[in-house]
């Protein structure tokens, strides 16, 4: 190896190991792609793990409230990277006009969690790769790399399986599935350093326009931009090194109630 093994190499290799481990143990795997910077980085790592050909579907849970830029980005790269893209919606909830004006909690639950549940049941996935990170939220920091969900999708956070020496819980009972989190140890700034190093495409919404940019992208109606002049990756990295504002400060579901995230997650939210 010509260059020395640095922090990003270490993270990259750990993630590739986990992705390969999930596929080796289950085969019926899907990668959950929200089209944001984290899950797009996860996709990049999966492409590396499988030499450019991801051998399982990529799942987009479409709440129908995403930004136009996100849909465009999805379609462009699904084609360019030859992805087996599955778009899943909770059609009944869409038809009934579910929206955040009804209840933010119910909307997240119906449009994301239930839609995901339906997709897993339909496609019979045994493991899902997700791009969550510990530094995003205190609840996510409690996660395991391989995290079981029971048939009701519940996360038994009071009794999680032990995980040591890169040995994971890799068998699931009939009705269970495993959430696999290859990016758990990455920080927000690591993602950006890596996006830059690898030249990974990310949606334009992350870059500042008219003094504002998105740090975390969810549904158009429920996430707000932060004040920022960072219109390049270098400026974003610089901003993250000095900012005192946390990443998900613009995300409504983190705020409404102290434990909303825990409640959503224990019902199966990502």
């Amino acid at each position: 190896m010509s260059r020395s093994f640095d922090h990003l190499d270490k993270l990259e290799n750990q993630s590739i190991f986990i992705i390969r481990e999930a596929y080796s143990q289950f085969r019926d795997v899907a990668l959950l792609w929200s089209i944001g910077k984290d899950s797009t980085t996860l996709m990049w790592l999966a492409r590396k793990a499988f030499f450019g050909k991801i051998p399982f579907p990529v799942l987009h849970i479409d709440t129908t409230y995403k930004f136009k830029e996100i849909y465009d980005f999805r379609d462009k790269y699904a084609k360019e990277w030859g992805l087996n893209l599955i778009v899943a919606k909770n059609e009944d909830a869409v038809a009934s006009g579910m929206g955040p004006d009804k209840s933010k909690f119910e909307c997240c639950n119906q449009m994301k969690t239930i839609a995901l549940k339906q997709a897993i049941a339909r496609e019979k996935f045994k493991a899902l790769l997700l791009g969550i990170r510990r530094d995003e939220h205190g609840i996510r920091a409690k996660e395991r790399v391989f995290s079981p969900r029971d048939e009701d999708f519940e996360w038994d956070y009071k009794d999680q399986p032990p995980e040591l020496w890169d040995q994971y819980k890799t068998k699931a009972a009939e009705e269970e599935h495993l959430r696999v989190h290859p990016l758990l140890g990455w920080r927000e700034v690591d993602i950006w350093d890596y996006v830059k190093r690898e030249n990974i495409p990310v949606p334009e919404l992350y870059f500042a326009k008219n003094g504002k940019r998105f740090r975390s992208i969810g549904c158009e109606c429920c996430c707000g931009p932060v004040e920022s002049d960072a219109d390049t990756i270098d400026k974003i990295v610089q901003e993250l090194k000095t900012t005192q504002i946390s990443e998900r400060s613009g995300r409504a579901q983190d705020k409404e109630d102290d434990y909303m995230m825990q409640k959503l997650r224990s019902l199966g939210y990502m």
Partner: peptide, 20 residues
């Protein structure tokens, strides 16, 4: 660090966590 509702109510740490 103790983010789980039970952890805060009981004032104990239930599961391991990581911070930077």
């Amino acid at each position: 660090l103790d983010h789980l509702e039970e952890e805060r109510k009981q004032g104990i740490t239930i599961d391991t966590t990581q911070v930077f």
